[in-house]
């Protein structure tokens, strides 16, 4: 289980997270929604140990990742796979090298096994035969799919997907949501997913949370979210223009 307790983070004078606390149950898909610049990405970066909070802590299976040194964090991070909002593909490497990178760094697989795993991932995201291309030669959607392949290639216990369907058409988006859900269920991993595609996200999550201006506004099951009387949650889930947002 991942536990976030009293998390606060400031960048300069701007408070990005303020007293955020939540328990993310193991083995489920936890969605995170909210308007832009509400602190969603900063929160999941704290969970992955990429940022250190000004106050509060993040516990992964009872271990306080916020208080760990870099070496210990690196060890814990090896149990995470992460898709970044901007994909973060390495420009100097080919698509296949990008996907193979975590395998070479985090596993003891030989080159033949790595090549097999990379080919399987590429086929899974519908990019078979794209291995020799560089990320610059791909469209935005293709780059996103390569990012998903890289995030899932190590079969991590914890998965973080930051906007996995941004820039994809509706059909591909739903396929990606279904693919990620299937991956999460088959490996019984704990997945955190941020998405602006609320309808798509709500079709696959077990629980969902909403952030607004650095604070956690709501956390509950999908049904509880859909039945919520909170005007912010209601407006955001329904995509209405009239309301407090």
């Amino acid at each position: 289980m991942i536990r976030v307790v009293g998390l606060r983070k400031r960048f300069g004078r701007k408070t990005v997270l303020e007293d955020v606390g939540v328990d993310i149950p193991a083995g489920g898909l936890w969605g995170l929604i909210g308007p832009g610049a509400s602190g969603k990405t900063v929160l999941v970066k704290h969970v992955a140990g990429l940022l250190t909070p000004d106050a509060g802590r993040v516990e992964v299976e009872g271990q306080n990742i916020s208080a760990m040194g870099e070496v210990a964090r690196q060890k814990l991070r090896s149990r995470f796979g992460m898709l970044f909002q901007q994909n973060a593909l390495f420009d100097s490497l080919t698509v296949a090298e990008n996907i193979a990178f975590p395998l070479r760094r985090l596993t003891a697989l030989d080159e033949r096994q790595i090549a097999e795993r990379v080919a399987e991932r590429l086929a899974r995201v519908g990019l078979a035969g794209f291995g020799d291309r560089t990320p610059n030669a791909l469209s935005g959607g293709q780059r996103k799919r390569v990012g998903i392949a890289r995030a899932t290639v190590t079969q991590s216990e914890y998965l973080i997907f930051d906007e996995p369907t941004a820039g994809l058409d509706p059909v591909t988006s739903q396929k990606i949501f279904d693919l990620l859900r299937a991956e999460q269920i088959s490996r019984k991993s704990t997945a955190l997913m941020i998405s602006s595609d609320v309808a798509g996200l709500m079709s696959v999550v077990d629980r969902v949370a909403m952030m607004l201006r650095g604070r956690l506004l709501f956390e509950g099951t999908r049904d509880e979210a859909l039945a919520s009387s909170d005007p912010y949650v209601k407006q955001f889930l329904r995509g209405e223009t009239e309301g407090p947002l």
């Binding site: 970066k45 690196q74 909002q85 973060a88 593909l89």
Partner: peptide
């Protein structure tokens, strides 16, 4: 700024 350095850290590359 494109998160590639964070991606390196996620892959245990200092």
């Amino acid at each position: 700024v494109t998160d590639q350095v964070d991606a390196l850290r996620m892959c245990a590359a200092e």
